[in-house]
Design a protein around this nucleic acid. Structure first.
Length: 418
DNA sequence: TCTGGGGTCCTAGGACCC
DNA sequence: TCTGGGGTCCTAGGACCC
């Protein structure tokens, strides 16, 4: 079994720990520049303040209900997170810290999962003051469902989801949009086909799900049916990219101030990279204008610089940003919004295979077998390509009678018996 | 007589998560 | 007037190497 511990309203709960007078009172935490609501206490949720809502839109509710408003304090939240995670890992060493307020734990071999989880929950509350919920099930995706249920429908804050009837009845009452891995785009698409509950989703044909939602969608579906497809990763893996981004609170009208922002973002990014003991392969500067503005045209542009690692090259990010601006505006800098710098450290890793048409017996049998192995691995990790740009396509063009297999699609893999 | 085969790295966008 | 910041993985290729 796998357990998922999730802190309730984490940022809001952190603020409350240091200000007990706020108990049972509505409280929200705002994003950078006090722009959006990013955490709400239960009381604030009940009033109707929405997640991600801009503060100016929620102003009326905030004032009328005397809501306590906090700016973010990430130093505090990071510190509280460390304390919670350390308590959990003392009680269950096989732990994957998934986010600042969530952790998956490997409960295999545990006799009484409910008892252990209840003890964890009490320990965390006692030592940190942060309330948590724990969901337990056979797969990661089901622990998410169990956790969702534990938060809303149990007194204990712990729920073990291991019975088929229970699973089905909860999935029937759960909108498909609430599933882990199904965001707004997929939810809209599914609703368009009349798929509304999570139970509707698991009833779908697997090949349809694969076609419409890639391998990620299929994994979610299989996990909901109790087949583990997303493994628990208990070792710390190095970052694959590092990003420093900030929106400006006000309109930027001077090139000089933009240059200064870009310099400081670049410095902060490099600092994070050194902490990771990482080395960048490419660096991008991204600039966007205000996507919410109706009076101005929206621009989104980026400029990337690549280099071999390790490198001692000096990169002039500021001039790169300047040339980016010129290229997206096709004119001298006027003003617009938002500056970002991104460093992508390790490129994606894809598996590629070359095969030919099965009727012409040009597929090598040993390759087909190893393809199956690779595909099995790939289901857990990457993408398998059968055929590749070079060879198979050349055959297709020059030797039509051989009708080579050139595909990157799962359907075709299934056709050849993989 | 036939015309490769096995790779690495990069690009750029789309979806998702907390 | 004011709309977060930090990440992950997948797709569908293209360029290039020996």
């Amino acid at each position: 079994m796998i357990a998922l511990a999730d802190c309730n309203n984490f940022y809001a709960s952190c603020e409350r720990v240091f200000n007990p007078a706020l108990k049972n009172k509505p409280l929200i935490v705002l994003s950078n520049n006090d722009g959006c609501v990013i955490a709400r206490s239960n009381e604030a949720k009940a009033i109707g303040i929405r997640m991600g809502e801009p503060v100016f839109k929620a102003k009326k509710l905030i004032v009328e209900n005397n809501v306590n408003v906090f700016s973010t304090n990430f130093a505090l939240y990071g510190d509280m997170s460390k304390r919670v995670m350390s308590l959990l890992s003392n009680m269950s060493p096989d732990i994957e810290i998934y986010s600042i307020d969530e952790a998956f734990m490997d409960f295999s071999g545990i006799q009484d999962c409910f008892k252990l989880a209840s003890e964890m929950r009490e320990t965390v509350i006692k030592h940190t003051g942060i309330p948590i919920s724990i969901g337990i099930a056979k797969t990661k995706t089901l622990t998410k469902v169990a956790n969702h249920y534990a938060k809303r429908h149990t007194k204990e804050g712990v729920y073990v989801l291991d019975n088929k009837n229970q699973i089905n009845s909860i999935l029937k009452s759960m909108p498909v949009s609430k599933l882990w891995g199904i965001g707004s785009r997929y939810a809209r698409m599914l609703n368009g086909y009349g798929i509304n509950s999570a139970f509707d989703f698991i009833s779908l044909d697997e090949s349809w799900v694969l076609k419409k939602m890639t391998i990620m969608g299929l994994k979610i579906q299989q996990e909901l049916k109790g087949k583990p497809r997303i493994s628990i990763n208990t070792s710390l893996s190095p970052k694959k990219n590092i990003c420093t981004s900030r929106s400006f609170g006000v309109k930027v009208t001077q090139l000089q101030s933009l240059k200064e922002s870009i310099s400081s973002h670049a410095a902060r990014c490099a600092e994070k990279l050194r902490l990771e003991k990482g080395c960048a392969r490419y660096v991008s500067v991204i600039i966007k204008t205000n996507p919410f503005s109706e009076s101005e045209e929206y621009y989104h542009g980026y400029k990337t610089m690549s280099f071999n690692t390790p490198t001692n090259d000096t990169i002039d990010i500021v001039s790169a940003a300047e040339s980016l601006l010129k290229s997206i505006y096709k004119k001298e800098f006027v003003y617009k919004k938002s500056g970002v710098i991104v460093g992508d450290i390790i490129p994606q890793n894809q598996i590629q295979l070359n095969m030919f048409d099965i009727d012409e017996k040009r597929i090598k049998r040993d390759k087909l077998n190893s393809a199956v192995d690779l595909i099995n691995q790939a289901v857990g990790r990457n993408t398998v390509h059968i055929g590749s740009q070079g060879i198979a396509r050349k055959w297709q063009l020059k030797q039509e009678k051989l009708s080579p297999c050139y595909t990157t699609k799962w359907d075709d893999l299934l056709k050849v018996g993989c």
